[in-house]
Simulated scan of single mutants.
Amino acid sequence: MAATTMHSAIGSVQAHRAQISSSSQNGMGSFSVKMVSKCFGIDMRLLGRGNYCSRGLKLGGVHASTSSIADSVQAPSNSKTTDSQKKSNETALILIRHGESLWNEKNLFTGCVDVPLTKKGVEEAIEAGKRISNIPVDMIYTSALIRAQMTAMLAMTQHRRKKVPIIMHNESEQAKTWSQMYSEETQNQSIPVVTAWQLNERMYGELQGLNKQETADKFGKEKVHEWRRSYDIPPPNGESLEMCAERAVAYFKEHIEPQLVNGKHVMIAAHGNSLRSIIMYLDKLTSQEVISLELSTGIPMLYIFKEGKFIRRGSPVAPSEASVYAYTRTLAQYRQKLDEMVN
């Protein structure tokens, strides 16, 4: 079902920027974004709430077990990890745009307005969870908005590891104290969920709450298209994609990337523009390439972080898992261990 909702997505890798030396250094090769209408294939060769838009909460440290992809699947009684465990040389990064929201359904500019999912959005989130059910997740990051948090929680109900996602409340000492767990076994069977306003959708300013078609009729299609799709031109009293990227990428580099370096497998549930910003960083897109990038609701993307490089493994193209991701050897080992636990 989720695949049929995909309007367009990142396409195949193409070598169009011949004179960019950094592309060969990052091991991925040069590429440009190619739009497709229904699905796209995988490059097998690479096989807390508050004023969300203006300020953030100081996040305390979150500790998740450090383990390799294959070693992170253990029976509950053996799930304790130690500091001497070997860090993984390969970690998974999953990106999911939230499922359809009530304002998506009404064709309204949403931005930083906190709107929940529709029934279809709930189904998209559950379907996304099925597609990543065999991929390890040690930590989850979401925006401060409920539609992203709902998507993350619903997706994890489908994961075969059956760990419980728990939102970390670090907004005050009292909040941290009141939400503390006192069972080590329970903590080992939990996944910390960190919410951050920096991962919020682009703030659309005076467009928020307006119907997109009516706004185009009032201001003209070209002007509204410029507000929505240009890189550095913001809507009235809102954020441009460039401004959104400044906060989202800075947060990713400061808080999320170090978790991947330390061997943790991370899922990010966020929004079209905050995720586009992060993908721009991961795939080294230009400002012209990123404005052509569309992400459909509820469609997970998988990256592998290895030796300091991000390698895109693909997105779903069919309901069967075999068509979802080109698994690495360690991901395949992880799934095998999951199968052994069940059997």
Rank of each mutant, 00 (worst) to 15 (best):
V324P: 00
I146A: 09
Y182S: 15
R160E: 14
Y327K: 10
K284S: 15
S8N: 04
Q213V: 10
N200L: 10
S179P: 00
E185R: 03
A216W: 05
S320D: 14
M156I: 07
E257R: 13
S230A: 11
M267R: 04
S32P: 00
R312S: 12
S230F: 05
E171A: 11
E294K: 08
I291H: 01
I94G: 01
Q85L: 14
S274W: 03
W178D: 15
P235D: 12
D138L: 04
N188A: 11
S22Y: 12
E239R: 01
D232M: 06
W103H: 02
R55N: 07
G29F: 04
Y182I: 13
E100K: 04
V324E: 11
N78K: 13
T297G: 10
I256Y: 01
T186L: 13
G29T: 11
A70W: 05
S292T: 14
G29S: 01
D283Q: 15
L59N: 14
E90T: 07
R131Q: 02
Q180T: 15
S67R: 08
K80W: 04
E173S: 13
L46Q: 10
L338T: 09
K306V: 06
Q198G: 06
G209T: 07
M156S: 03
S101N: 02
R202L: 05
L302W: 06
K106I: 10
D43K: 04
A125Q: 02
H225E: 15
N188M: 10
V122M: 09
T157M: 06
E254G: 01
A175Y: 01
T297N: 14
K218T: 14
E289W: 01
M280G: 05
T157A: 05
P165L: 08
D114S: 11
M203S: 13
V164C: 09
E246W: 03
T142S: 12
S101T: 15
V62K: 01
N273Q: 10
N188I: 07
S65H: 14
V324S: 08
M153F: 14
I268E: 02
K87G: 12
G238Q: 00
A15W: 03
S54A: 14
T81N: 05
A15T: 12
G220C: 03
R131T: 06
E100L: 01
Y281G: 09
V342T: 10
V194T: 14
E307R: 08
K162A: 13
G263V: 08
M168D: 08
S30D: 11
S88V: 07
V62E: 12
N51I: 11
G209H: 07
K212A: 08
Y52F: 14
S143D: 03
L260F: 04
A144D: 14
I10T: 11
I166D: 08
M1I: 12
S183M: 01
Q149D: 03
E226P: 00
P236W: 06
A9I: 10
S65I: 13
L260M: 06
S21C: 06
S230D: 07
E239K: 03
G41L: 11
S292Y: 12
E90A: 07
M44S: 15
T157E: 14
L285R: 03
P258V: 15
